[in-house]
Simulated scan of single mutants.
Amino acid sequence: MVRVGDPGTTPVFPYGPLPAAPHEEPHSAAEAAHTASDPVVLRIARGPEGLARARSFTRDTLRDWSLGHRCDDATLVMTELAANAVTHAAPRCAGAPDVRLGFRLEPAHLLLTVSDPDDRAPVLAPGAGSGLEEHGRGLHIVDALSEAWGWTPTPPAGKTVWARLSTSPPT
């Protein structure tokens, strides 16, 4: 599993290519059936309505792309990333634009992105993923469900946090 937590990694959607996968293996027939798609972007408002819209849009997009088998994990990852942006980043930037979600389907991967107006790095709280804490587990969940995740600055201001999930059906 690749973990990226510092800026300066290869820029990602919508600004450039994905970072290299931890290992590339020949594509199976199921993976070959998924072709690269045009990115899909959604702007959400800050608040519970925006998060509900993020969940619904994620499920609808994955079903449209015949990725129902990835729907639960992708929806949870997108919800955690969006919740972090809405809760921690957007409130620090009064008058800044809303949070933007992005989806891109590639032959073997699904890329989920959340862009927000705050320049500060996401924080993976130490030890927060192991207990029954009410807060601080979001990035631990993202880390557990994705092949890789990270963030990149988005000039002129803000950042994009991304997660890459496999499109392969569960075995």
Rank of each mutant, 00 (worst) to 15 (best):
S37N: 03
E49Y: 00
H88N: 13
N84H: 09
R53I: 06
P107R: 13
L42Q: 08
S56M: 03
A83S: 14
R63K: 02
G95P: 03
A96Q: 06
P97I: 02
A29G: 04
W65V: 04
P48K: 02
A82P: 11
S115K: 00
T35V: 13
A74Q: 05
A125F: 05
L110K: 01
L81G: 11
P122L: 09
V86T: 15
P19G: 10
A128F: 09
T79Q: 13
D38L: 14
C93I: 08
L81K: 04
L105D: 01
A85N: 02
L110M: 04
P26K: 05
H23D: 12
L18C: 12
H88M: 06
R53M: 12
A32I: 13
D73L: 05
A33F: 01
A82Q: 07
A54E: 03
H69A: 11
F103H: 03
R70I: 06
H23W: 08
T75A: 15
D119L: 05
E24R: 14
G129D: 12
D116H: 01
P117K: 06
A54W: 03
E49L: 11
A33T: 12
A89Q: 03
E106A: 13
A20V: 10
V86Q: 04
E106L: 15
R43M: 11
R100F: 00
S130Q: 13
R104P: 07
L76M: 14
G102P: 06
S130T: 14
P48V: 10
A54I: 09
A74L: 09
A52C: 02
A74M: 09
Y15L: 12
P17W: 05
R46H: 02
A96P: 06
C71P: 00
T87N: 08
L124R: 13
E106K: 04
L51F: 04
Y15V: 01
A82I: 12
A74K: 04
V99L: 02
R59V: 14
A30G: 11
E25L: 15
A128G: 09
D119E: 14
A36I: 10
A54L: 07
A54H: 03
H34C: 14
L105Y: 01
T87D: 14
R59G: 10
E49N: 03
A85K: 01
R92A: 05
A83E: 14
M78L: 15
A94P: 09
E25Q: 13
A45S: 11
P26D: 11
S130H: 12
S66D: 14
S28A: 07
T87R: 12
L67A: 04
L62E: 03
D118M: 02
V40C: 06
C71I: 04
A33Y: 00
P19V: 14
S66K: 05
A96E: 12
T79F: 15
L81T: 10
V114T: 15
L105K: 00
L111V: 15
T79M: 11
S66R: 10
R63M: 02
N84S: 13
Y15Q: 08
G127L: 09
L51S: 05
L51W: 02
G47H: 01
A21G: 06
A74N: 04
E106H: 13
P97Q: 09
G127F: 07
V86S: 15
E31N: 05
D64M: 06
A83Q: 15
A74C: 09
D119T: 04
R59H: 07
L67H: 02
